[in-house]
Simulated scan of single mutants.
Amino acid sequence: MKIAFIYPGQGAQYTGMGKEIYDNFSEAREIFEEANDSLGYDIARLCFEGPDEELMKTENTQPAILTVSIALTKVLSNKGLKADVTAGLSLGEYSALVYSGVLSFKDAVRLVKKRGEYMQNAVPIGIGGMAAIIGLDNETVENICCDVKDVGIVEPANYNCPGQLSIAGEIKALEKAVEIAKAKGAKKAVMLPVSAPFHCSMLKEAGFKLEEDLKEIYTYDMSVPVITNVTADYERIDEVKKMLVKQVSSPVLWEQSIRRMIEDHVDTFIEIGPGKTLTGFMKRIDKTKKAVNFEDMGTLDKLLSSLEVN
């Protein structure tokens, strides 16, 4: 068995996430306390009680998901589970880098709060957004993006799984792209309820600001290989910061990242964090591989049982 730990990104959050694990494991509580110290506010209360409108703010969502993901990871580590490789979708890449030892948790949680602020503020509300296109192949969607460039910026943003690609850019151009996608037979083409055009060139300014913060961050040796979103290949320790800057305005090559791990004989994928979005993607990418999620006591029991861990 070759295991990958995979981590979800923004959009997976919900009020109450992580509470059962916090209540049952001291190592999880320690991570929340460390986050509180680093951020200067009670991240546990935000995760467990909301309110939703605060949890949904990008600058809060990102440190909240990271904290829950690393708290869950500590529990698995104490159960003796280890990964041979790790990756995360967008924000989730920071969880992967913490697990691999490259970033300290206290640095990462502060960094992603800043990242959230920069990404949200890079484009004025109402100017940019995202859309999901389901049921068309990647090349068709890429061509649609080219077809509407006279209307405005639209670019591929998230290559999630076969037949599911999200695009990002200017609202008018996105609406035109959605219209064309429907005409070309997309099963679904809809605007997404997000307030910024994540992972496209409109966020380059956010990347530049993040780059300044990264100059102050120390990176450590990598104990577990990391697959990066930008290239869908193994991260080089000397390029971590550069990739994190590029990631802000580059498409997330998630399907390609999973396939890279499968090429290297990974057969068990454990999604660690709120929700089971990545587990769902796995079923579309390669349903012959084991894919399980861990977010609460129920999923922990199922995970340990499926892996025959006590």
Rank of each mutant, 00 (worst) to 15 (best):
L39D: 09
G40E: 10
Y41C: 08
Y41E: 15
Y41I: 11
D42A: 06
D42E: 13
I43E: 10
A44G: 10
R45K: 15
L46F: 04
L46K: 07
C47K: 03
F48I: 12
F48H: 05
G50S: 07
P51T: 07
D52I: 06
D52K: 15
D52R: 13
D52H: 15
D52N: 15
E53A: 05
E53V: 05
E53F: 13
E54H: 10
L55T: 02
L55Y: 07
L55C: 14
M56F: 03
T58M: 08
T58S: 13
E59W: 00
E59P: 00
E59N: 01
T61R: 00
T61N: 00
A64L: 09
I65M: 02
I65P: 04
I65K: 00
L66I: 05
V68D: 02
S69V: 05
I70H: 00
A71Q: 06
L72Y: 11
L72M: 11
L72G: 10
T73H: 01
K74I: 00
K74Y: 11
V75S: 11
L76N: 08
L76D: 12
L76A: 03
S77W: 04
N78A: 12
N78L: 07
K79N: 05
L81I: 15
L81C: 00
A83C: 04
A83S: 12
A83P: 03
D84V: 11
V85G: 09
T86W: 06
T86G: 03
A87P: 05
A87N: 09
G88Y: 02
G88C: 13
G92F: 02
G92M: 09
E93H: 06
E93G: 06
E93Y: 06
Y94M: 10
Y94A: 05
Y94L: 06
S95T: 14
A96R: 10
A96W: 04
A96Y: 04
A96P: 06
A96E: 02
L97G: 10
V98F: 08
Y99N: 00
V102T: 15
V102F: 11
V102N: 05
L103M: 14
S104N: 14
S104W: 03
F105A: 10
F105K: 09
F105W: 08
D107L: 14
A108K: 11
A108S: 09
A108F: 04
R110E: 14
K113D: 08
K114Y: 11
R115D: 05
R115P: 09
G116V: 01
E117F: 13
E117G: 04
E117S: 14
Q120N: 10
N121S: 15
A122F: 04
P124E: 07
I127D: 02
G128Y: 08
G128T: 12
G128C: 14
G128K: 04
M130W: 02
M130G: 02
M130A: 04
M130K: 06
A131N: 08
A132L: 13
A132H: 03
I133V: 15
I134Q: 12
G135E: 13
G135V: 08
G135I: 09
